[in-house]
Design a protein around this nucleic acid. Structure first.
Lengths: 153, 153
DNA sequence: TTTAATCCCTAGTTGTTTACTAAGGAATCA
DNA sequence: TGATTCCTTAGTAAACAACTAGGGATTAAA
């Protein structure tokens, strides 16, 4: 039930971009240095985020990435699901998954539990935006640790 | 963010035991057949559940396993955490984990999010007991699928 | 117009984890 | 005594995670 580095790094990167929102494109090299992530790996994470329409890119020298919308309209849920897939404890609770998972026609005592878990996770991550994180960050900057965000595992 | 077969099979097995609560020891062979799990694998799952005090065993012929308490006092959370470890999206939110995860002394914008996810999952699974599952099962027996529980993936 | 910076894409690699299978010992009932 | 059952450990094949590597496309600046 752990998030992988894809989701964790991706969230860090998106928060980094949110801090520089409105200041033009930010290069991956910059983000990678600040957040202590390999540039090559970060490229693989930003790609789906761009395809999902969460960030926009500017190619060439002095290029980089920027949020495609205001931080207040980008949820943590949209970032995490883009990189991790649905935040569901099982595949069977995900609507658009293939039919070969289990017999979906009947009632299942365990499935209702997994659905409740899924709903509660979704509800939390969809209610938090990058703007919330920025507000949180600015309020607590005094006790902030060294990096922008710690290497949360 | 998926549960592994350990948690899913373990929950199925515990629900099976709950259905036979008060009827003496149930052999793993029985459970394995009903729930379509390999006996050898199931043995590896029941072992930690026994060590956690959730089930009791009777050795020898006509032996088996039974819940150590009433189904109403055994939560889904206790079963899943026994088999999967803490249901946390990251290690850093787990209190008793080693100190080498990240600098725990400072404030972290992402950690607070992971803590909220952790709390919401914990809250759901700790509020559901095996008795709830039995009640649910008996209420919906009409639309029940073939097996006791479907092969939820 | 060249160069450097940057995005963009794909393939390969290494280590870990998952999901088992297999096998044999210990206890107990018939 | 033998069948049945719990109990434990070791091994293994496949999938996955977390990268590394390399090269092509695009563009600003020198």
């Amino acid at each position: 039930m752990k998030l992988s580095t894809r989701g964790r790094y991706g969230l860090k990167a998106m928060f980094d971009l949110a801090l520089y929102y409105g200041e033009g494109p930010i290069s991956l090299t910059n983000i990678a240095e600040r957040q202590a992530i390999s540039v090559n790996y970060l490229e693989q994470l930003i790609s789906p985020l761009r395809k999902a329409g969460l960030v926009e890119s500017v190619r060439g020298a002095q290029g980089g990435y920027m949020l495609s919308r205001t931080p207040g309209t980008i949820t943590v849920g949209s970032i995490l699901t883009t990189l991790e897939g649905p935040l569901a404890p099982t595949d069977c609770v995900v609507i658009d998954s293939g039919d070969d998972l289990c017999d979906q026609s009947g009632y299942c005592v365990t499935k209702v539990i997994y659905e409740k878990i899924y709903e509660s996770i979704t509800s939390v991550v969809n209610s938090i935006t990058l703007q919330h994180m920025i507000d949180d960050y600015e309020q607590n900057q005094g006790q902030m640790i060294v990096h922008t965000i710690c290497e949360c595992k």
